[in-house]
Amino acid sequence: MSKKLLEIQNLKSSIEHTEILKGINLSINQGEIHVIMGPNGAGKSTLANVLMSHPKHEITEGNILFEGESINGFSADEKAKIGVFLSFQYPEEVAGITVENFLRAAKSAVTGEPVKFLPFKKALREQMKLLKIDETYGSRYLNVGFSGGEKKKNEILQMAVLEPKLAVLDETDSGLDVDAIKVVAEGVNTLANENNAILIITHHKKLLDYIKPNYVHVLLDGKIVKTSDGSLADEIESKGYEWLSNQGGV
């Protein structure tokens, strides 16, 4: 049996005194791909943000264990350093710093070691090729003037460079056309291996045509109400979320 990577125990969180997560339990092992689905406002993005220690979200109860240790008090950069990654739903534009320089700084920060200029450039080019990102993006300012699809591909590029143990993809597929979804899915499939795990947050099924998850969870009103295999996504596609809201739990 593979190693347990993430364990979320009865996690509750609030933002500006409003409770959003109302007791999440979730366990992810190495080598697994999990999907969380749910309607707007269910708390999907909140879960992603809490996992990455967004400063506006506060954990009010429960525990997040990563490789067996509580990481509740970790800041975002500390989490990045132990191998947690979040692909943002709306990646920020940061003017004046190029994608390449940013990624080199990030790689160096995450590994704690200096990153050599030329080998990094070469590796970055290969990753870009894989994700069908034009080389010139390396010298463009981080996400500035990028289309929605380009921003999302840039997130996956960052994931490829930083090689996290746990990657959380928050609505990475939203706003993408079919071709872009394919590219993102290919990227994710290439990067997924037996030593890492991926948690995909989405409210479309489209991405799941290309990525085969081990588990699909449904999040409703701050709680996971159902967990099943990939077929659950098909069921949701045809029936919506209504029928689940009456189940009151797994």
């Binding site: 967004h54 400063p55 506006k56 800041s75 975002a76 950069d77 990654f85 920020e92 534009e93 920060a109």
Partner: peptide, 13 residues
């Protein structure tokens, strides 16, 4: 704040 969080999520202090 969001931009700071974004950069921090990539390991930057």
């Amino acid at each position: 704040e969001e931009a700071i969080f974004y950069l921090m999520s990539r390991g930057i202090s």
